[in-house]
Amino acid sequence: MGGQQTDAELPEDHDFALWEKRVDALMVLCSTKGYFTVDGLRRAIEDMGEEAFETMSYYERWVAAVNQNMIEADAYTLAELGERMEQIKARGPTYGEATDG
């Protein structure tokens, strides 16, 4: 990253959405409890490659990386995750409705 040519524009600030704060909290709590290290998180983000940097937001990359590390730590299985995500989608079309269950 350091020294590479990129576009010059610096982005504006934005307030963090609730789901982003929750991702941040999951990262802090799960790493504090020893499920992974900050290096494990960074490694998972790097392994997503350049394309992820272009197509995913900051906390989208983070939630993917926290999940990758929790799968590797055997906290839950991919099948459990996938089935739960299907149930959540069925609850409603917005984040608020899907969260409220």
């Binding site: 789901w19 929750r22 991702v23 999951l26 799960c30 939630v63 993917a64 926290v66 999940n67 929790m70 906290a75 839950y76 459990e80 995750l81 739960r84 995500m85 959540i88 989608k89 984040y95 899907a98 969260t99």
Partner: peptide, 10 residues
Amino acid sequence: TMEIAMRELL
């Protein structure tokens, strides 16, 4: 959706 699922499972 993944964030909600992770949080619920954990």
